[in-house]
Design a protein around this nucleic acid. Sequence first.
DNA 1: CAGTGAGCGAGCTTCCGCTTGACTT
Length: 644
Amino acid sequence: MAKKLVIVESPAKAKTISKYLGSDFEVLASVGHIRDLAEPKELPADKKKGPLGKFSIDVDNDFEPFYTISAGKSKTVSELKSALKGAEELYLATDEDREGEAIAWHLLEVLKPKVPVHRMVFNEITKDAIQEAVSNTRSINDNLVEAQETRRVVDRLVGYEISPVLWRKINRGLSAGRVQSPAMRMIVERERERMAFTEASYSSITAQLQEDSVEFEAKLSSIAGEKLAGSKSFDESGNLVQKVRVLAPAEAEALAASLVGASLEVMSVEAKPTTRKPYAPFTTSTLQQEASRKLGMSAKQAMDTAQQLYQEGYITYMRTDSPNLSQQAISASISAAKELFGADSVHDSPRLYGAKSKNAQEAHEAIRPSGESFKHPSELASLLHGRSLALYELIWRRTVASQMADAKLSTTTAKFSITHQGEELEFSASGTTVLFKGFLAAYDETSDTKEPEAKLPKLDVGQKLTAKEVLPKNHSTQPPARYTEASLVKALEEQGIGRPSTYAAIISTIISKGYVVKRGNALVPEWISFTVTRFLEQNFGNLVDYEFTAKMENDLDRIALGELDRSGWLKNFYFGDEGLQAVVNSLGESDPRAINTFELAEGIALRTGKFGPYLEVMENDERRIVNIPEALTPDELTLKRLRS
DNA sequence: CAGTGAGCGAGCTTCCGCTTGACTT
């Protein structure tokens, strides 16, 4: 009979840990949070009318929260309660981060244990680490719990204070939040840049050369000492930002034609050695990015597939912000690399990686194959298939590569010259060769890009080559690309907005609220998000500021250290002179027409009314209403406008 | 008398982060 009850967050983790602890211990899972702020509409009738009614937080009484057992969690809670009845000790082994500490505290509050309680923490799941953790327990860190509660309260205050403002001023059902609103704003800002972008055109000339049966291309780089324009020569308004020569299409065509059969002399050949380091092992964010780039998976698909691999015991936990590997994982990577790629493929000392995100909490390891020695993907070919196998292999490769040697490359640049029609023309060609593969043997970044890296033949200064073919090409500068799921997750992580468990959910939120649509891989803002973003920028600049979360995190850290007081901080945030409540109260009457109107161009305004978007066009002092299909997106409308 | 309309009150929408498994497509 088990005498000691251990509670962790994840059932899969419970199963593993149970093996390491023996029959004295019963290991159960809380399955995430068990309690949360009540929904105001579900408050008991007497509380609904009182100060709790708006937020389930008593803002006048030190922001005292009103918690309830989360929907669907009463069964888990009663199972935990009955397990506790037979136990002599309780170990709270939730994750060692802010949320985990809070879960432990909520468990205490709900279970009210009468036996000794220990807070047990570990950040890798190995027999040694677990046994060490069970004999080195501490007590709950109340400051850390307060920091979590502050985070939770801020999110409720922001979301439930500002969303109703949007209902009143713009349209029913809209939402705003600390995380979703900056995410939406990023997408809107990118679209604004695209709408304002003016393309510039320029032409280039490429000569096809051959030596030693190696064909390669050389590009015209300058004419009479003047450099030719490239994509970086123009700004977003299409203006030149460098002193360069811009070839017009006709000019390029004539010049190219006259160069066919010309003889180019090699002026210089320079080889530059470069090294490349392997990438850090996967975190949630980088896994989502690479699963998208290499396997074409959405953030949700990547997470669902990883979850399945985790639950079946193939990989470690998939929601993590730490790229750190345990000692055991480092050894496993090194031995896999040595066995498959040779002893010299391994870096001479273990490589350590630190989190790059400023708000990382690092409660878990990096995402890697589980176990003390990694199963090669081919061993799992009969057990896994399709997406699962592909994702496992990606994780396996990334992990093994992270302990391998730098790749050594050499980039050779050759310059050619010719005097043509009285002017000195310079061409240049470059090629890269891999001198030593190193980690590239396991994780080749370039293998999936379409064009293989160009190679150059051996060339000597003074040597002359004949241009067999000379081709002109017209180019135009491109507006900044729209965010994809993967690039948005990357940007959010860089700003410290959102957490590994929510990256995929943030995207679903702004899509399901109708703010953003996915077209192919691109995230495209709907008109309503222009309106909402502009409104938030004007009235709640603080909230949509990308720095907001980072600043909040800073203060939460100080609360966790006991340097700052929870209720004082919240009081200032909500009741301060420039606090949330003051801002909302000072909004006053605003012209709903103005808020809903987005000036597209002189005399053409877009309005996002309750019945969908439409255009108001002023023609000869007459107002004309033009309905537009809701599916239409900003850039399409711009094009359409130009056509009509 | 029947139809209209002003005025009022009630109910609905909403946040982020931690988990999995039960749903539907």
